[in-house]
Amino acid sequence: MRWYSALFDNEQIIEAALLSLKIAATSATFATILGTMAGLALTQMGRYRGRLLFTGLIAAPLVMPEVITGLSLLLMFVSLQELIGWPVSRGAGTITIAHITFSMAYVAVIVQSRLSSMDQSLQEAAMDLGGRPIQVAFDITLPLIAPSMLSGWLLAFTLSLDDLVIASFTSGAGASTLPMVIFSKIKLGVTPDINALATLIIGTVSIGIIIASWIMFRQRKRNEVG
């Protein structure tokens, strides 16, 4: 237990964990919004100029090696700063933008696969009855794809919480996320306080998974009954 109390006395780790959670929650939320829009744009909007490039832009972040994404985003931020003075400094804000960029691709793929496997007749009926596209999107499409948006959000959240390489590139001097702190400690070998931290994290995640699958199980049962 010594290492657990050492863990909670370690301000660096607590601060990094809070920062990571904040970045993960913010970036997952924006990634879900942008990714859902991208999913709609790829499935519901028909043909438009540049659609092929758009499809490529959604697929590329999924496979791009992290070192390239990280380096290119950092150089982008540095150039923007010189040109227009924004971003003023690198840290939580720039990491969040970087995480939104790669997680929105994951959300878009999840939403897109749901949308393309979905029966479109409800949307068509609503349009025939005079619904405007924006009404149809908010009243029919979005409620139907809400479960995929939720799983997209959760995936974006864990991806952000887990990312080391892109965060290292896009962070400034002040901000260290939890993976950055863990990595700098374990590079040199196995340490007991990180073992304690790993146990805590894996325990929390397991409880989360058990609760989530329990809720899903109950919902499925209720659907079967109803």
């Binding site: 942008l34 990714g35 829009m37 991208a38 709609l40 744009a41 909007m45 438009y48 540049g50 758009f54 832009l57 959604i58 972040p61 939104i100 960029t101 929105m104 878009a108 999107a137």
Partner: peptide, 9 residues
């Protein structure tokens, strides 16, 4: 819907 995620990427 098309423009915002496109521009971001």
């Amino acid at each position: 819907v098309i423009g915002v995620p496109y521009f971001w990427l």
